Structure formats: C-alpha cells, structure tokens
Simulated scan of single mutants.
Amino acid sequence: MRLKPRTVTLLMSGLGSMLLCALAIGQTVNAIIDEEEDRIQVAQQGQDEIDGIVATTRVRFDEYQSLLKQIEGVQVYNRLLQNQIDDQNRTLDDLRSSIEEVTVIERQVLPLMTRMIDGLERFVELDVPFLLNERQQRIANLKTLLNRSDVTAAEQFRNVMEAWQIENDYGSAPETYTDIVPVGGATREVDILKIGRVALLYLTPDGQQAGAWDHRSREWVELGDEYLAPIRQGLRVVETGQVDQAMFVIPVAPPEEQ
C-alpha cells in the first residue's frame, strides 16, 4: 500500500516531533542527572565536613575528659598539699610558742644561774678549804661558760647543778691528796686527810708533824704527837679503800654555836 505524500509528510513530521521530544527529554534527564550528581557531591562534601567535625569533636571531648581527670587529680593533690601546709603551720605555731616560752624561761634561768654561781663561790669561801684550787677553778669555769653564746641554757644549767652536786658529795666521802699549807711559820707540802666536812688534817711527809684546820679561827693549827699515828693510819685506810673495815681516832672541832 502506497502512502500518500501528505501522509508521509505527516508521518515524518510526527517522527520529527517525537525525536525532538525524545531529545528534549534526554537533555532534561541529563540535566537532572547532572544536578543529582552535583547534589550528591555537595552532600558528600557536607558529610565529609560533618565527619571531620564529629572526629574533631570526639578528639576535643576526649581531651576534655582527660583535662577533667587532670583537674580532679590536681584538686586532690592541692587538698593534700593544703592539709600538709595547715599541719606545718600548726607545727610552726607550736614552735613559735615553744620558742617564746624558752625565751621567757631563759630570761628567768640566767639570773638564777648567776645567783647559784655567786652562792657557790661564797659557800666555797666560807667552807673548809679543801681542794681549794680545784673548786675555785670550777667556779671560774662556770662564770666563763655563762658568758658563752654557743652553749645552750640547758647545758649551762646542767654544769651549774653538777658543780653543786660535787660540793654536796664532798661532805660524805673521805679523801686524801697533797697540798701546800703553813707549817711552823713556813709553807710545806703535806699529805691531807679529809673526812667529809667534819675534819681536815695534814701530816708532813716525814711523819713528824701533824695539824688540823680550825674552822672557828679559820687557820691551820698544829696537833700534838699523839695524833701522828691516828692520822697516818687514817691516810693509809682511805688510800687503800678500807674505810668500812677500820677505825681510827681523829680530832674533831666542836659544833659552832648558832
């Protein structure tokens, strides 16, 4: 069947229209696809930015958590340090109070020790003159010690009390030593027999003269020959340490009237 020219023309026109429509549709689809690809690309970029923000936020959060733990540790450490500081401050307050008390005590003790040394010096001057050089030197040492800044008040006080204790012990123990005393108008070295503070006697090395300290007249007096043997025996007994096992007679001055 042959188509008429008009029909063919119409058919060709329809086909052209369809082709134009298909072409237009294809162009539209391509544009839509391009737009979708652009949107997807933009969305992907946005997602990448979001992922970057999330990662950064996670890092920042982890750092924040770490900082919180560090801050908590520092706060605990600061509390411990503050407790130590408070305890040290209390200790310092106690030390300051103790130092103030010690200062007050030292201000009271130093005059007391001065009076004790002066009293000891006066006591030795009035006492029986045994071991006089030794006792006077001890007092001189105490006075020097009291003026030394490198010696504590406690050490000074201990030495003063020790000197008084030595003087106290002199009154109970017998003792022998050599000394120089006036004998027959001249000074001679003699053997001294000290019986506490009860008697202070001497015997010349040749055993021919004896004497005793008279506390009332405060001078040495010569004794009769009858005391030579007892004093010699007393010297021997004390030197051998047999005081508790022997008995000997010595002259004793009568008690002084008050």
Rank of each mutant, 00 (worst) to 15 (best):
G14E: 08
L19G: 13
L20D: 09
A24N: 01
G26I: 00
Q27E: 05
V29N: 09
I32N: 07
V42N: 08
A43K: 09
Q44H: 04
E49A: 14
G52Y: 01
G52R: 10
G52M: 04
G52K: 06
T57D: 06
V59D: 13
R60S: 05
E63N: 12
Q65N: 15
I71T: 09
N78Y: 11
L81Y: 06
D86C: 01
T91I: 06
L95N: 10
S98D: 09
E101H: 12
T103F: 04
E106H: 08
V109K: 08
L112G: 07
M113Q: 10
M116Q: 15
I117S: 05
R122M: 08
L131D: 10
L131E: 15
L132F: 08
R138E: 15
I139R: 10
L146N: 14
R148I: 05
S149I: 05
A153I: 14
E167H: 11
N168M: 08
N168V: 03
Y177H: 10
D179H: 07
P182H: 05
V183F: 01
G184S: 13
G185A: 05
D191I: 03
I192F: 01
I195H: 04
L201H: 07
T204C: 02
D206T: 02
Q208V: 00
A210F: 03
E219I: 01
D225T: 11
I231E: 09
R232N: 11
Q233I: 03
R236D: 14
